[in-house]
Write a protein that binds this DNA or RNA. Structure first.
Lengths: 136, 136
DNA sequence: GTATCTGCAAAAACTTTGCAATGTA
DNA sequence: TACATTGCAAAGTTTTTGCAGATAC
């Protein structure tokens, strides 16, 4: 990972990034810390918070809002503009990038006079695995 | 307000609802409490939390995620399905209901195997007033 | 009159900050 | 070696809970 942006590559940061990258789910700071500690006892929750702030600033991770905690993070897999489809059972996230909101955005701008800067779009649903689990 | 759903209509609840209904902005529990206290000193923050939980359960208010705090509430003006366009300067919210995501939703369902249950869509932008304020 | 609500105070959860010690580059 | 980064502990916030007294119906 290209952390040569002036920041040092420490064990802690590597560990946090590793946990986030490994997970297909979105994780809260607490959950991330728990997982980090498994392999690296002694790493403080504080470092997790600090690392998350850093990664968020750099745009390497992003938040998930649908389904509970708004401070759940996720690796920004496609690095550019994209959205999430979140499983309401297991939390598993699938990314997609073609949202095609241009028309709506344009009409809204005209109707309201707002100068639109961006949007937040997330879908909630049940992933194939969780659906299958229902029909035991 | 039709609170005859088995719940009692108390001064506190009326006050909280009043503040939310009055505001065109989205407010955090703390902000709501501050405003409630102005007219009704002695009302506890606890009651605000409890009332918010109640109103949220009943679907009378909804959250705003764009721009900071994810626990900002807003009166559910059009009572059905709708979305928000939030001013990134003053927080003022405009509602709209035609989001036209059916196609995208269908394609996502096919591509991913998810059974889609719902979506969260919010736009961020600058409202006419705030835009005007820039060109002093 | 009674079951629902409220406020207080205290607890629990979550997040940020100060500082000496540590580890990367 | 030097300075960014860490962990601890402590302080701030935010949210929840227990309980006795108040109040809507």
């Amino acid at each position: 990972m290209l952390r040569r942006r002036g920041y040092r590559l420490t064990t802690q940061r590597r560990a946090v990034l590793d946990v986030i990258a490994r997970s297909r789910d979105h994780l809260t700071p607490g959950e991330i810390h728990q997982q980090v500690v498994r392999r690296h006892p002694g790493v403080g929750l504080v470092s997790v918070y600090r690392t998350l702030a850093l990664l968020a600033d750099m745009g390497l991770i992003c938040e998930v809002h649908v389904g509970g905690n708004c401070r759940s993070y996720l690796l920004r897999r496609p690095l550019g503009h994209h959205h999430h489809l979140v499983c309401s059972d297991c939390g598993r996230v699938v990314d997609f990038s073609d949202c095609d909101l241009g028309q709506l955005e344009k009409r809204l701008a005209e109707d309201t006079g707002y100068e639109i800067e961006g949007h937040l779009l997330e879908f909630a649903g049940r992933c194939p695995d969780c659906r299958a689990a229902t029909f035991t």
